[in-house]
Computed example of a mutant assay.
Amino acid sequence: MHRRRLLVATWCALLVVCAGCSGFPGGSSSPTTPATTGESPTTVAPTATADGPTANATEQLAPGLTANGVTDALALANAHRDVLTSNPFVQHTSLERTNGTERSFRRSTLRYANQSHWLWNVSASGVPLALGVTSGAFVSYADGQKVVYRLEANGEVVYNVRRISGRADAPPVPPKRVLPESVYGRDFLYTLFANADVTVEDTQGPAYRLTGTAEELVIDQQTATNVEFTANVSEAGLVRSLRLTYEQGNATVERTLSVELTDGDPAERPDWYDRAVNQTSGG
């Protein structure tokens, strides 16, 4: 295995709500290139060789991906993001950290219709969650005009509307500003695919199985070792699932991602919506 070191975009930005901010952590200054999101895989035309006969170039499985591996990590990461921003989907993520008998976790489900209409449910124990809370449940719902939330922690439940300031009469934060770019995983996937040793294990389709390894990475601003991952990628470049494991300090960490595209609107309005709009709270 080649020794590699890279700075991986913090994956927890996919999950954690930033306390006191108008939006969630995320975003990137990395360059963006056009990506194809809905085309079937193509085969590159035969090319002539110096020896005379022609040889078939490697089949293109997905944007930036061939049977030989990842040829353009940016194109593949962009394709994944573009599929998600163009379709309704349900995305599940999880993080579990174990250290001897101690265990902490964070789990998230995002039901996405579009950038202004979604339902995001996050639960955690021993891991930063939202509004300064490290254990509990946080649910956000965007109705197209505003974002309401429900926070359950320390035996209490609070409902409210995300506003541009702390004033009760302040305008709501536009939903597009609350949902971070990082939720689509573009930066994380780009850095991972560009730097890990990636092998295509299954080229039969319609989803291709990739495996990757790295001796040492930097994840969440901390050194991670013995990194291994498995991913399933569609012909359009969507990373349907990802399982990542590594050692960090004296703990073992496992992260997962799974995405399913949907035909209809998966973001149903929660039954506590009116209570949040009225900005009431109670146990």
Rank of each mutant, 00 (worst) to 15 (best):
N232Q: 13
T280L: 10
E247C: 07
V259C: 01
N121W: 08
R269G: 11
T37N: 04
S28C: 03
L242N: 02
W11C: 04
C21F: 06
G38L: 04
F138W: 14
R243E: 11
A62R: 01
L14V: 10
Q145S: 11
Y159A: 10
T101H: 09
S29D: 06
K146V: 06
V200F: 12
G283W: 03
S28F: 00
V70G: 06
R5H: 13
T109A: 12
G69K: 00
F188K: 01
R111G: 00
F193M: 13
E235G: 09
A62P: 00
R186H: 08
T101E: 12
G185K: 03
V158Q: 12
T191D: 14
T49C: 04
V183D: 07
P25I: 03
V158K: 14
T203C: 06
D202N: 14
Y159I: 10
L119P: 10
E254R: 13
T262R: 13
Q91H: 05
S241M: 03
F105C: 05
N87S: 15
A251E: 02
A142S: 07
Y190N: 11
V148S: 06
P46K: 03
P128K: 08
C18S: 13
A137S: 15
A77S: 14
G136N: 04
F229Q: 01
G64I: 05
G283N: 08
Q204N: 10
G185T: 06
P172Q: 02
Y190D: 09
G155N: 03
A168P: 00
D143P: 05
R162C: 15
P88Y: 07
V8I: 08
G166A: 04
R167T: 06
R81A: 14
F105Y: 13
E59P: 10
A57F: 10
G264Y: 15
F24Q: 07
A153Y: 03
D220R: 07
H117R: 13
S108A: 15
D263G: 07
V90F: 13
P171N: 03
R3D: 14
T101K: 12
V233L: 09
D51Y: 09
T47K: 09
V198L: 06
S40P: 08
G26L: 02
A113M: 05
D187E: 05
P266H: 10
A113F: 02
E201C: 01
P172E: 01
A137N: 15
A50Y: 10
P88A: 08
Q91S: 13
E181H: 05
E228L: 08
L110D: 02
N278P: 08
R209K: 11
G23P: 07
Q279D: 15
V178G: 11
E39I: 09
Q60N: 08
T66C: 00
L74N: 11
H92L: 11
E59N: 08
P175A: 01
T191A: 08
P88M: 04
G64N: 00
T211G: 13
A75T: 07
R111D: 12
W272P: 09
E215M: 11
C21D: 14
A124N: 03
N56G: 00
S28N: 02
A137L: 14
L210V: 00
R81S: 11
A153C: 01
L95C: 09
N78Y: 07
T280I: 12
N160H: 09
T223V: 15
E228C: 12
V127Q: 06
G64L: 05
Y273T: 08
L244K: 01
S28I: 04
V44L: 12
E260C: 03
S108C: 14
T42N: 07
C21K: 15
L131D: 13
A231G: 00
P34L: 02
L261T: 15
